[in-house]
Design a protein around this nucleic acid. Structure first.
Lengths: 278, 278
DNA sequence: CAGTGGTCTAGACCACGAT
DNA sequence: TCGTGGTCTAGACCACTGA
């Protein structure tokens, strides 16, 4: 999108005297061929031995070029088959739309927030419970729930599957006063955790979401089956509520009732927000 | 965050017979030492030659281990000095808060949306104009502005600097009927593009934001001075407006007036949203 | 100057896929 | 069986940093 002035010879040649490393020149050449559509999504790149011959370099050099493209998320490789151009327009990406998904009528209609996003796109969602334990709050969780570090909270850890793909690792933390009844069950049930919280006499008022980006840890690569060069989103969501008994309409007495932390697979999500201009 | 059961010997040993590659075992060992705090942010890792001796492997193998950590964004290296643990809690990250920044009172107080985010955090923002030209709309731009592909739009491309760091590449596209007067100037002026749009008789009603993640292209790495293992956010924002002359309060006649595309440096931003529960 | 990381070579053995 | 990519070795030359 920025500086497309780079000269790209269509003949595969490299110049060892340039200040750009040879393996990067090879990577640039392949990169541009992919951008130009000479190699389209799903196509195989030339094999390593072919590239060695074409560029007259050692195999290591060719492999570093291919590695650079892989780390960029442009290609993926399979032993015994070849290196292939990745499809960068993931049709199977889930559109996460918090503005819609966190609204009351969805909870009341029995759909949890994730299901709102996924079902509207015809994706089946399955939760895999990894842990449901009481444990001391980390400083991050304590801070967001207004507790002291080390106070006991109920932690629920899950891996969410969207169809055949694990797409989200999440952790829900509830203060013990909130974590009553069905909130301690293995499955939060229709409408999700938020619906159960409201049934227990809390009226949800608002949510804050904050997120940041990073590359996954090796564990996350494994758990989310991430390809090379796929980043993740660190999502931190805090839900706030007031007591529902009094019939005040305002937000006096508002307090955090859930701290929700998730790691989203970057290639399987698209996030949408709607903001009013006033 | 998921499966911390892995056994980590504190003595640096690798087992070539395991199914996990030696370089990954070395990477795991270093990774855990970093997580445990044995190597803190800014600390130097053992040098390559030291790791070669400790693990009894070739230099290439050690370098691949370090490369894996670098691609994860955990460490960075400097020739002649060493490999250092990166500070993962970027104090200099700008908190982008669209919910606040797109509100009218900020425009009326003469602050553009980016400045709202940055100035509240004491960061100086400088825009570097890369291009200001009329050009045919891409299919993406045309689709979001309700135009036909190829119709002429006014494109403004910039690189934004937050302090000493380039942190955002952006492109603003305006239909020609909107792109009048000061909107064609090099600098949009106080309150930014949105303020100018409203002064021209359009009342902004809402914005949609959508974003997705990916690894940067080599160009973006250069333009944003990105370190290894730093992802970017693709942001697509569309502003909608109605004519301000009639005194209808509703949104009849609402139309898109600006398509804004940005690439944000992933390690220099944190995004925050606030969502009401109703 | 010694030590560091960056690049490149020329080979080896292996696991896997297609045939 | 052959071609593919995945790992590893042992060495070389270079550019840069810091004392």
């Amino acid at each position: 999108m920025t500086t497309p002035e780079r000269e790209v010879p269509s003949e595969p040649v490299v110049d060892p005297t340039r200040d750009r490393a040879v393996y990067l020149q090879i990577a640039d050449w392949l990169h541009d061929r992919i951008d130009n559509g000479a190699f389209g999504p799903g196509d195989a790149l030339p094999s390593e031995s072919k590239l060695m011959r074409q560029f007259g370099t050692a195999r290591t050099t060719v492999r570093r070029a291919l590695g650079a493209l892989a780390h960029e998320g442009l290609v993926w490789s399979q032993r015994g088959r070849g290196v292939f151009v990745r499809d960068r327009e993931p049709n199977d990406a889930v559109v996460r739309n918090p503005y819609e998904r966190l609204r009351r009528h969805h909870r009341e209609s029995g759909r949890s927030s994730l299901l709102v996003d996924a079902q509207s796109q015809g994706v089946e969602v399955v939760q895999e419970l990894l842990a449901l334990v009481e444990e001391p709050a980390t400083s991050l969780v304590a801070h967001n729930l207004g507790l002291e570090e080390g106070q006991t909270v109920l932690a629920r850890r899950r891996r969410m599957w969207f169809g055949e793909q694990p797409n989200q690792l999440d952790e829900s933390y509830l203060p013990l006063e909130i974590a009553q009844g069905p909130l301690r069950d293995e499955r939060p049930g229709e409408g999700g955790t938020h619906a159960r919280i409201e049934e227990l006499g809390h009226r949800l008022t608002r949510f804050t979401e904050e997120f940041s980006l990073r590359m996954p840890t090796p564990d996350e690569v494994h758990m989310l089956r991430l390809g090379d060069g796929v980043p993740v989103v660190d999502l931190l969501q805090v839900a706030y509520a007031v007591a529902a008994d009094g019939n005040r309409a305002g937000r006096e007495g508002e307090r955090p009732v859930e701290c929700f932390i998730a790691v989203l697979a970057g290639d399987k999500h698209r996030l949408e927000y709607r903001i009013d201009a006033e």
